[in-house]
């Protein structure tokens, strides 16, 4: 997910049209900035990732969801 706004240890993040509040406590303050991409697990950002990896992760997720639904165009 991409960070759009940070307030203390909480960030507003978005991905694929979804916006969520993500907890940043697993990072030291100041390490993450708006615009950064993060890997999110159970509500927490657990690692910073590069934008290309984030895009690939999103495409993979979309393909998987399509496969689960049986969408031949996924």
């Amino acid at each position: 997910m991409q960070i759009t706004e940070i307030d203390g240890d909480l960030a507003s993040c978005h991905s694929g049209g979804i916006t969520r509040t993500v907890n940043l406590f697993i990072f030291e303050r100041g390490v993450l900035k708006p615009g950064d991409y993060v890997l999110v697990h159970v509500g927490y950002a657990i690692q910073k990732i590069d934008p290309e990896a984030a895009q690939l992760a999103w495409e993979t997720e979309r393909e998987m969801q399509g496969a689960i639904r049986g969408d031949p165009n996924a």
Binding site: Q47, I49, D50, E52, L56
Partner: peptide
């Protein structure tokens, strides 16, 4: 792109 040799050191510290 996601994994580094040492990982997230602050997470490990916690």
């Amino acid at each position: 792109a996601v994994v580094t040799p040492s990982g997230n050191r602050h997470a490990q510290h916690l």
